[in-house]
Simulated scan of single mutants.
Amino acid sequence: MTRPEGAEAHHRALESLYAAAPINALFASRLEIPEPGVARIRFDVVPDHFHAAGAAHGTAYFKMLDDAAFYACNSLITDRFLLTTQFNLLLTRPLAAGPVVAEGRWVSGQRRVFVGDARLIAADGEEVARGTGTFMRSRIALAGLPGYRIG
């Protein structure tokens, strides 16, 4: 098996970084970056994520949408970790327990500020939310972060 190189190696390292983040111990999920500017995260929503009325709390929507848009944008730069500076949400339907996919994509920006959007797709194939965020290049080097491993 050959080791990934270039963009593919960066994408695999970002997937590893995502898996290593402590917050993801609370959310059963898996990141896939199939190509530059695109990220897909498969989540399992569980009752622990529910608000008092028995559906996913807004924090779960935000987590899924922000992560997908963020990683779509960070897939385009190999040196620095991006930071979310703003995020807008549109929640269109309550989300029950079960699998959900967050699909993120880069929209614009290539230097300091990036714009990405994402949508949540429930198990029945229906969109339940969407969001748009801005992400700024930080001073944090990706190579120094635990979990970001090339090769």
Rank of each mutant, 00 (worst) to 15 (best):
R40T: 02
F50R: 12
G109K: 05
A19K: 09
V38C: 01
R112T: 14
A97F: 02
P47M: 01
V113H: 06
M136L: 01
I23T: 15
A118C: 03
F27M: 13
Q110N: 15
D67C: 12
F81V: 06
A97C: 02
P94N: 09
A118K: 10
L142T: 02
E8G: 01
L89K: 03
G6A: 05
F114L: 08
P22T: 09
A102R: 08
A97T: 02
V101P: 00
A39P: 00
A55W: 14
I33K: 14
L83T: 07
A25F: 14
N88A: 09
V107W: 01
A56T: 02
R119A: 13
A141M: 06
A122V: 07
G144C: 08
D48V: 11
G133N: 01
Y61E: 04
T132L: 04
R40S: 03
L17F: 14
L120I: 05
S75P: 04
F135M: 10
G131P: 02
W106M: 08
A53Y: 12
N74K: 02
H11K: 11
P36M: 07
D124N: 15
R80F: 05
G98W: 07
T92C: 05
P47V: 00
P146V: 07
D124E: 13
F43Q: 12
Y71G: 09
Y148A: 08
V115G: 03
C73D: 11
R137Y: 01
A68K: 12
G144I: 03
N24S: 06
A60Y: 03
A39Q: 02
S29F: 11
A118G: 13
F81Y: 02
F135D: 00
A52F: 10
F70Q: 06
S16N: 11
H51K: 12
I121F: 04
T92D: 11
A118N: 03
Q86P: 02
S138K: 11
S108G: 05
V107T: 09
A7E: 07
A123S: 15
W106A: 14
Y18K: 07
G133D: 08
E103G: 04
T92V: 03
L82E: 04
F27G: 07
R30K: 10
F27D: 05
L91V: 11
R130S: 08
V45W: 10
A97D: 08
F81T: 00
T132K: 01
L89S: 03
G104S: 06
E8F: 04
F43E: 10
